[in-house]
Nucleic acid binder design. Structure first.
Length: 328
DNA sequence: AACGGCCTCAACCGCCTAGGT
DNA sequence: AACCTAGGCGGTTGAGGCCGT
């Protein structure tokens, strides 16, 4: 059974021959594709219009970039995928010269495996163990994935590197039935994992912890990068990834992406019992008590705070899990 | 050399949406 | 409103290549 667009025609399938490529190329470069369903006849091809379109888009288009994906491209794919999910066409728009098919294949054959090898769920970008093991209603969380500490990154221009918060008081999390919504400067976030309040210069701020992202080791060299990595170079949080790697993302996309992301939240409720214990985190300088370094990007106009919930066993002085609990 | 398992990726399938009639 | 068609998209398939035994 073929496409309905070409069911009445005798069409060839399978790989394209060089002769067919030549015909299609010659036709489109001199006439444009116009209506794709008319292309096979005009170009003298025994193919359906869809097949011609696909061949042009994925292979013959002159602006295609060939060869292996670069590290930068890989990083971009991961970052955008974390936000957009399997929206390959949208992801490909962030990679000039790459097609959705190419990105999809690269993801399925390469990136997916890398993430799994890092202990990450390629669909949610969360730690697999945390995702799969939010203990069964028992308040003592026994995950061994990593201890958790908090980091904050923000794009607010009022907060600079090493800003100290006046206070940093998390509220108890409430997202038991995926109904929670918070609004921050016009952005609406559904089902955040964690919400807290803080003040800075007597200004009341609200923050929320959101998704999980792997970030490349090269980022650790950036002095203004306010996150802490675990042994697998993993962190929670979105703002950093978007600031650093997806500069072309629009505000509207951001909203859509956040919405899509929220749909992928894992089911349990994370309750913070005592975060003040975290102020003495033994860090490498990136986090020292409530004194964080921040990711401030003046080209990025999001004026709200986001938090990174960081799996960071290597930097913690105590067992942070003593102060956290999963409530499923 | 032969074989089997795995991987890659080009191409197809089927669904969805927008626009036209 | 109902139907049709084209185009776009994500999921899936399978041919061919690679690699280990």
């Amino acid at each position: 059974m073929g496409h309905h667009c070409c069911s009445k025609q005798k069409v060839k399938r399978g790989l394209w021959s060089p002769e067919e490529d030549e015909k299609l190329m010659r036709h489109i470069t001199s006439h444009g594709h116009g209506c794709w369903s008319a292309v096979p006849k005009l170009a003298g091809l025994q193919r359906c219009g869809k097949s011609c379109r696909l061949r042009w888009i994925n292979y013959l288009r002159p602006d295609l970039k060939r060869g292996s994906f670069t590290e930068q491209e890989e990083r971009t794919i991961i970052d955008v995928h974390r936000i957009l999910g399997n929206r390959w066409a949208q992801i490909a728009k962030h990679l000039p010269g790459r097609t959705d098919n190419e990105v999809k294949n690269f993801w399925n054959s390469c990136i997916k495996k890398k993430l799994i090898a890092q202990g990450l769920d390629p669909n949610t970008h969360n730690l697999l163990s945390l995702h799969q093991n939010p203990n069964n209603g028992n308040n003592a969380c026994n995950t061994k994935a990593a201890d958790l500490v908090f980091s904050v990154s923000t794009t607010s221009s009022t907060i600079t590197s090493h800003t100290k918060f006046d206070s940093f008081k998390p509220s108890a999390l409430t997202l038991p039935h995926q109904n929670t919504t918070i609004k921050i400067n016009g952005f609406e976030y559904k089902n955040p994992k964690l919400v807290w309040n803080a003040t800075h210069n007597s200004e009341s701020l609200i923050g929320f912890a959101n998704d999980f992202t792997p970030i490349p080791s090269s980022w650790t060299n950036q002095s203004n990068f306010g996150v802490v990595l675990n042994q697998e170079n993993c962190m929670w949080g979105t703002s950093a990834g978007i600031d650093q790697n997806v500069g072309t993302i629009t505000r509207q996309e951001m909203e859509l992406e956040e919405e899509a992301q929220q749909k992928k939240r894992f089911g349990g409720e994370l309750i913070i019992n005592n975060v003040t214990e975290l102020t003495n985190v033994n860090s490498t300088g990136m986090i020292e008590g409530m004194d964080h370094s921040f990711d401030v990007d003046s080209n990025f106009d999001f004026d709200f705070m986001e938090a990174a919930l960081v799996p960071c066993g290597m930097y913690t002085s105590g067992n942070i899990m003593d102060h956290l609990a999963w409530d499923c």
